[in-house]
Design a protein around this nucleic acid. Structure first.
Length: 268
DNA sequence: CATCATGTTATAAT
DNA sequence: CATTATAACATGAT
């Protein structure tokens, strides 16, 4: 489920635990989410630490604990973060539960495409992999030149597919990619190499606009995006293009393995 | 039973 | 080596 703004929303769900100390770590050790950081290492690494801060970058999250312990989380397709009472029995899909003094922090993920990492560092800095993440759409480093340079590396790739590439557009997911193409009035399957400088500048601008509005609504309280966007019309067959004066039928088809929705009339 | 799902990545081909 | 294309991963909802 989670893209840029949903990830930001979930990150904040653990805020009630800030300042608390991890009394006990409960895991489902065999769960696939521990494929990179074994459950036992996570248990040992976090027990007794204070939860100090959290950050989100694209679809990645980073939780800082005392003593230089940094917990990285990725929600995959179905991951969620939430809180539960301090004494909480972990449910079927709750693979990581951090029991603090006053409440528990819960990571659940039934499909288990999510994952986590644990870095123990000396220098008080976030781990290197975090510092090296590419600029996200709302960073000042996400410039027109950055977008042009990235897109031009992949001339054959469809625009929508490229928007899903986390190396260039960290945080953009399936609904945001469709939304950006629709607002740009460009077909999702247009080869990236066919876009001129003006179109690439439009891509930069629209990517930022969609990201900003999503963060403002969904990212704060899972609020609704406007019905004038594609977002609320793209989920089922038979939807109608919400653009004023269009109202044409929307198309839903697979593009490179992802369901893609667009308007045949607006996006040419 | 078949199909689909807001994501990533290993692998192979070019 | 860089880019491009596809399949696989695991589970539940419909």
């Amino acid at each position: 489920m989670p893209e840029l703004a949903e990830v930001e929303y979930y990150r904040k769900q653990w805020n009630p635990g800030l300042g608390g100390t991890v009394a006990k770590v409960h895991t489902h050790p065999a769960a696939r989410i521990f494929r990179e950081a074994p459950a036992r290492a996570v248990e040992r690494g976090l027990a007794g630490r204070r939860f100090l801060a959290s950050h989100a970058h694209g679809k990645q999250m980073l939780f800082e604990f005392s003593g230089g312990a940094w917990l990285g989380l990725h929600l995959g397709m179905s991951g969620e973060l939430g809180v539960a009472p301090a004494r909480h029995e972990s449910g079927k899909h709750e693979h990581l539960v951090l029991a603090l003094d006053s409440l528990s922090l819960v990571f659940s993920d039934y499909r288990m495409f999510g994952k986590l990492s644990l870095d123990l560092v000396e220098d008080g800095q976030p781990p290197l992999w975090w510092r090296e993440l590419p600029p996200q759409p709302l960073d000042s480093r996400f410039t027109k030149a950055w977008v042009r340079g990235f897109v031009r590396r992949f001339p054959k790739t469809p625009l929508k597919t490229l928007l899903l590439d986390q190396r260039g557009f960290p945080g953009i997911g399936n609904w945001m990619a469709d939304e950006i193409c629709w607002q740009l009035r460009l077909p999702p399957q247009r080869p990236a190499g066919s876009l001129d400088d003006a179109a690439l500048d439009g891509l930069w601008k629209t990517t930022r606009h969609v990201s900003r509005e999503a963060m403002r609504t969904v990212g704060t309280d899972w609020g609704d995006l406007p019905d004038s966007w594609l977002m609320n019309h793209r989920w089922r067959d038979g939807g109608t293009c919400p653009r004023r004066g269009c109202r044409s039928g929307l198309v839903r088809e697979d593009l490179r393995g992802r369901t893609t929705c667009w308007c045949l009339r607006c996006q040419t």
